[in-house]
Design a protein around this nucleic acid. Structure first.
Lengths: 161, 161
DNA sequence: GTTAGACTTGTTATACCATAACAAAATCAG
DNA sequence: CTGATTTTGTTATGGTATAACAAGTCTAAC
């Protein structure tokens, strides 16, 4: 996924925010100003955003600039399933399927740093089965794959040519 | 895996150290005192060790107590394939298969914090295929599963009984 | 055995990531 | 309105990781 690819990213943001409103309303959760704005800022790209990067953006807009502000917003959004944490980057990413129960499986491009979330029921089933073979009861999964995305592979090929 | 389980853990350590010696010798790498001792300390259990925990242990033994000391040792051991980093814990774990090229797939017990490394070629193949479907060229994989290990499930069952 | 170069370690400083603890303010239900 | 609950403000601190440069150590070639 390049920075200037086909999709209209405003749609991503709008959809994510609408889903967030709906979900919070349904669960009696309050999507306050800072939480809402944090979610929008995280959704500004498909690259994970660090907590302190987010904090700086919020501070620019007049929000409180102490770390708890941003970590509280992140906790809220994580619990609501509206964002994911990318463990290998200590950074946070908007979730495009917040309305569906799911695990976050990620493809992380080393080059452009865009992250694509993918779903793969087969892999989940295999992992549960494999864990069970070891007598292990699975609770959570961190699946983060890195490499080169289609766009960056293309560009690498052009450079070589 | 409980703390008092069947295996003689000295064997784990001895094997790991012997492998490390062999590997470093073969590759013209130097397993210096601090690197060797760091590896031993990481191997003291099957629980991942944090960088600063390791630093404290090294400092007790007279090694330099500044962070770069431990991070350099960790970098060396990671590059040599002798340890893995558990991203979701920011901690480091001895690798039992340093002599074989492999990805680190982990089962992490929430209760006893022991970590078991497992190998699963099928899952690796599925992930490569899935990535390829998205035009993605895979380079590295972070697979970290948490839950309850066999021993801790057993104990939980006993408590319930 | 001396010396140049590469590698390793020492040292200081700093940046980044995350949470504890308690006070103040806003919101909501009765 | 008021008391309870939730959210936010504020200060402080703990945990993770690296930059930059100096000093020491090892090794290979002379």
């Amino acid at each position: 996924m390049s920075e200037e690819n086909a999709h209209n990213h405003n749609d991503c943001i709008d959809t994510a925010l609408a889903t967030a409103e709906t979900l919070c309303l349904a669960q009696g959760q309050r999507l306050t100003k800072v939480r809402r704005r944090a979610l929008e800022l995280i959704w500004e790209s498909h690259r994970p955003l660090g907590a302190y990067q987010l904090l700086a953006k919020l501070a620019e807009e007049g929000f409180n600039s102490a770390p708890p502000t941003v970590y509280r917003a992140l906790d809220f959004l994580l619990n609501a399933g509206l964002i994911h944490k990318v463990e290998s980057m200590n950074a946070y990413l908007g979730c495009a399927h917040a309305d569906k129960e799911h695990k976050g499986y990620f493809l992380i491009c080393d080059e452009c740093h865009n992250v694509m979330e993918f779903d793969y029921q087969d892999i989940h089933a295999s992992l549960v089965a494999k864990a069970a073979q070891h007598g292990f009861e699975l609770r959570s999964e961190t699946i983060e794959l890195t490499g080169l995305c289609a766009d960056c592979r293309g560009m690498a090929a052009e450079v070589r040519a």
